[in-house]
Write a protein that binds this DNA or RNA. Structure first.
Lengths: 219, 219, 219, 219
DNA sequence: GATGAATGAGCGTTCATTCAT
DNA sequence: TATGAATGAACGCTCATTCAT
């Protein structure tokens, strides 16, 4: 019994350490991928920064790509949480879209810059698995946005060109997100200018979807 | 005299062959970069596909990056020609923007898919020279679009939030271009669906800029 | 405790193996550089001869030049040890110079032929770092010889043409060393002839410096 | 007849041009080999500097090594002419040796620096033919010096340790020549210092051979 | 004779991944 | 579990030499 307790405690400690190592490696990779990009970061560097051996990195992650995928998924989760929260908070979908935009530019791109970089700067052209993940992320966020757009359309009582339209608009919004985020991330400017750019970008997005829902939208 | 003529003809033919080889290598590189990406394409592959030796590739191009830069510049030139043509043809800037959008989606992305891929799929993180090129391209196209947007604003007789606004809208439009183009290029769909998506995307853009110019725009 | 011991032993063995591999690679490089010269020896050959992969060579040495530098430094150290020992052993500087000469020709050039080849056969024209090393070696040995010559002059109570003279004589001696060594190393002859040549060369050197110290030298 | 004359004239002109081109290429190679070394000079550079195509270089010279060999032979011829002249001019072999030394340091190394560089800086480790040439040069100059030394010995009426001795002394002298020349060529100093160094070096050499000929040499 | 485009073997170096300890 | 030495395929690039014109 005592033995067992002891074992349990040991096991718990081990589990904690395990978890800690795992996070450490992930953080090191995140920082490096964000700073130098996936391709220019070597596994040795990740191991160094995590104060761990290369072998250990490979114990926790199947390969370098797997690391990127984990980080990508985490970043995606973070982003969707932020956007989702805004949509839920807001009573109307238009306001939700507006708030989501600001949350994206002012919160995600600034407070989680490294995550944003991994999501938007890492190019295509990695492994096949990663390619699937990227496609998946676009689809997921598109779907989130699509849903909001569909609400918006119903509220406005208008019809779309076809059932696909809302996902095209979603894609457009994501395009704006990505492009502006990329600019913020690669050429950081002072806070004021960033703020103003974000306002304009959100305006653009809102304009885009209002046009879509047509003139029936009340002013 | 005859000798001279002959020399001239020989020289001409040589010039032609030179040009031809140059184009062949460039095309091979274009196809491979578009299909597999810059990093995953080796110079040996380019040489193979051009039916030429590695040395010859290096005779015509200083290095691998130079090849990418040439292709990038060509693609950019092609794109700007197409967009510029549409803006010039159209009487009003709004119509110009509409036509430009359609030209981009229906002409550039379809007829020059490989060029589009090089412009929009190649990731950041290459050499320093290439990085400058990429930044430059965004700025050039942004400027083209900015100008049109400024016309549009003047016609509408309204003011922007600030002098930077038009370039932010341009960035947004470019974001939409890139995102939708990327979708077309990586997951080609049937022509009809593509057409419809393009219509929606253009609507989105027009909506974005109309909102910007505000309610003073006459219906 | 036992575990600890074991670890220590393991660590020791590993350290030994590490050291052994390091030496093996260095020896392989030494033999090849001595036989074929630096430029004509490829890293692959060094790896082959060490029964190790290319990657391993690069694990132990930053690059090919680094290998040469290590070997060069080792050879230089060896040579200076030998010369220094002779000067210290001998009561008078003239005798010291004589003994040093014989140690150089009969010991260094014969017993450490490969080291001598690396020191004297490798041409200028390698990397910038190596160039510095080569210059440094000439200076160091010159200084060693200079010091002995200065003693000699003081003992003889005579003056030099100018303060630089002793280093010129040192340079001359080094010139003789190099030339004769090069002959020995590239066209090995029977031991007897080698011995006789060494005697003559030492005579030449002694003559050179006696002349320098002038007629005040007692017969 | 007239035709023939014309042909002859044409032939002469052609011969002249041929000769001229040949010399031009050789000079270009000399300058480049002296400046950057054989290995770091490419055939393209030689062609460029000669304002001739690569093919032409290969028309006049079998390969790159052949160029070096020609230059080497020329340099050697020049050097031997200078040394030989001094020995012939002088009545006594000792004086001849002294004059030869000064001619070497003050004339050959200064006025024909590029030739000296090719003779003394180009390292071993080139092709097999070149290796033979280098050996040959040492032997030729050694023989020249040997002969003078033998005269000197006969004049002094003394015997050498053995029949080989004079060629060993010659080798030593050549060693001094090479080492000091190398210093002059790679680290040029002001004329005054150079002059003084040359004086010391010649003193050293004279001392070396006087010692050899033993105490029977009259003061 | 002269050209210069074409060749291709060869090189130094990197780095994701493995595995004995 | 953790280590880190070892692997080796792959890459971009150079340059002496050739040869059709």
């Amino acid at each position: 019994m005592e033995q067992k307790k002891k074992n349990t405690r040991q096991a718990q400690r081990r589990e904690r350490e395990r978890e800690h190592r795992y996070r450490t490696i992930l953080s090191a990779a995140e920082a490096l991928f964000a700073k130098k990009g996936f391709r220019k970061t070597s596994v040795d560097e990740i191991a160094d920064r995590s104060e761990v051996s290369v072998g250990t990195v490979y114990f926790y992650f199947k390969n370098k790509e797997e690391l990127l995928i984990h980080l990508f998924d985490e970043s995606l989760y973070q982003l969707r949480s932020i956007l989702g929260r805004e949509f839920e908070k807001s009573g109307s979908p238009v306001v939700g879209m507006e708030m989501a935009g600001h949350a994206f530019f002012d919160e995600f791109c600034i407070l989680h810059a490294e995550k944003a970089l991994i999501l938007f700067r890492e190019s295509p052209g990695h492994g096949i698995k990663m390619e699937a993940r990227r496609k998946n992320m676009s689809e997921l966020i598109s779907k989130d946005l699509s849903r909001a757009i569909d609400h918006l359309r119903k509220d406005a009582g208008c019809e779309f060109r076809n059932k696909n339209s809302s996902s095209v608009y979603a894609m457009c919004i994501l395009g704006v997100y990505e492009k502006v985020a990329f600019h913020f991330l690669t050429e950081p400017e002072d806070a004021k200018k960033t703020k103003e750019m974000a306002l304009d970008a959100v305006d653009f997005i809102i304009g885009g979807i209002q046009n879509i829902t047509g003139p029936t939208i009340p002013q």
